[in-house]
C-alpha cells in the first residue's frame, strides 16, 4: 500500500498562551481533494505552515509523501506546493522572472516549457513580462498559484485561495484545480466558502481550537448531521416548539429530518396539535449547517 500524501501524528504548536495545535492527527490519501475547515484561529494556517516548514511544530510528526518535514525537509518541500493566504509578491520582478526564480529555488533550470503551460492554463500568458506591481489582485492571486506549481508538486495546499476573488476568476481557478486533481495531484483546501468545500472536497476535516473535531467524507458528514429539514411558518410557532422543532425569527420553525418520508407524519403531528401553516419550505442539508452543528457540539 502506498504511503499517504500527508501524514500528521500528534502535532502540537503553542504561541505563548495560545495552543494553536493541540495534538492533530490526520492522513490525506494520494489523489484526494481534501478540505480543511474551521473558524478563524482554529489552527488551519498553523497546520499548513508546520507542514510546509514555515513554522516548527513543538512535537509530533508531519510527513509529505512519506518524507518527514524536519529530518527530510528537502524531499518533503519538493513534494509540496503551497498557495499562501496573503496576497504577497516581490515587487522587483516580472511574472516570468518570478516563476523562473521559483523554479531555480527548487533546483530546476530550463523550466520555460512548463512555465509557459502554467501561464496559459491560468490565463497569464499576456502578463508574463509585466511587473508584479502592475497586476490586479486577481492576477496576483493567479501568479501565487503558478508559483506553487512550478516544481510540479504532487501535493498542493491552497490556503483560502478565493478570498476576495471575483466569481469569474473563482470559477476559472476551480476548473484548473479540478483538472490538477484529475491529473493525480492531491489537493488540500482551506476555505471559508463552505459551498466550495462541499462541491469540491471528497473528504473534510474540521478543526476547532487546534483539534480535529470532525473527519469524514463530505457525503457522510452531510448525512450524519440532519440530512434534510422542513421549515414551516406558523400562526402560533410555539406549537412547533413543543413538537421538537428549532424556532427561528419571523415565526419560522425547523424540523430536522433524516428522510423525506418523515415529512407527512411531521405535518400530521402539527395538524393534530392545532398548528396552522402559513408558509412551508423543504431544505437539503448543506455543509454550513453541518459546520455550525459541529462547532457548536465540539
Amino acid at each position: 500500500m502506498s504511503l499517504p500524501a500527508i501524514r500528521i501524528v500528534s502535532a502540537t504548536k503553542r504561541y505563548g498562551s495560545v495552543q494553536a495545535l493541540a495534538g492533530v492527527d490526520l492522513e490525506v490519501d494520494r489523489g484526494e481533494f481534501f478540505g480543511l475547515l474551521g473558524p478563524n484561529g482554529a489552527g488551519k494556517t498553523t497546520l499548513i505552515s508546520a507542514l510546509s516548514g514555515l513554522v516548527r511544530a513543538d512535537s509530533g510528526t508531519l510527513e509529505v509523501m512519506g518524507h518527514d518535514v524536519v529530518s527530510d525537509y528537502r524531499n518533503a518541500r519538493r513534494k509540496l506546493g503551497v498557495v499562501p493566504q496573503e496576497l504577497v509578491f516581490d515587487p522587483f520582478f516580472t511574472v516570468r522572472e518570478l516563476l523562473r526564480i521559483q523554479s531555480g529555488y527548487f533546483g530546476i533550470r530550463h523550466n520555460d516549457d512548463w512555465i509557459d503551460e502554467i501561464l496559459a492554463s491560468l490565463d497569464l500568458t499576456a502578463k508574463a513580462g509585466a511587473n508584479m506591481r502592475m497586476l490586479s489582485g486577481g492576477m496576483k492571486r493567479r501568479v501565487l498559484v503558478a508559483q506553487a506549481l512550478v516544481h510540479r508538486p504532487p501535493v498542493i495546499v491552497l490556503d483560502e485561495p478565493t478570498a476576495g476573488v471575483d466569481v469569474e476568476l473563482r470559477q476559472g481557478l476551480w476548473q484548473f484545480i479540478r483538472k490538477l486533481n484529475r491529473d493525480g495531484h492531491t489537493i488540500v483546501l482551506t476555505t471559508h466558502y463552505l459551498e466550495e468545500a462541499e462541491a469540491l472536497c471528497g473528504r473534510i476535516a474540521m478543526l476547532k481550537a487546534g483539534r480535529v473535531v470532525a473527519l469524514d467524507t463530505t457525503a457522510n458528514l452531510l448525512r450524519r448531521f440532519a440530512a434534510h429539514s422542513l421549515r414551516v411558518r406558523l400562526e402560533r410557532p410555539e406549537i412547533a416548539g413543543r413538537l421538537g422543532a428549532t424556532l427561528a425569527e419571523g415565526g419560522w420553525a425547523e424540523f430536522a429530518l433524516d428522510t423525506y418520508d418523515e415529512v407527512e407524519p411531521t405535518l400530521a403531528r402539527l395538524r393534530e396539535a392545532g398548528g396552522r401553516i402559513v408558509e412551508m419550505q423543504l431544505g437539503e442539508a448543506d455543509l454550513e449547517r453541518v459546520f455550525v452543528e459541529v462547532m457548536h457540539d465540539a
Binding site: L54, R77, R78, L80, P84, V88, F89, D90, Q102, F106
Partner: peptide
C-alpha cells in the same frame, strides 16, 4: 522588506538549507 511584505515565504518554502 521580504519579511514585512511577506514574500520571504518564497525563499522559505523551497528546499534551501
Amino acid at each position: 522588506q521580504s519579511k514585512i511584505t511577506g514574500n520571504i515565504i518564497f525563499v522559505l518554502l523551497p528546499p534551501l538549507s
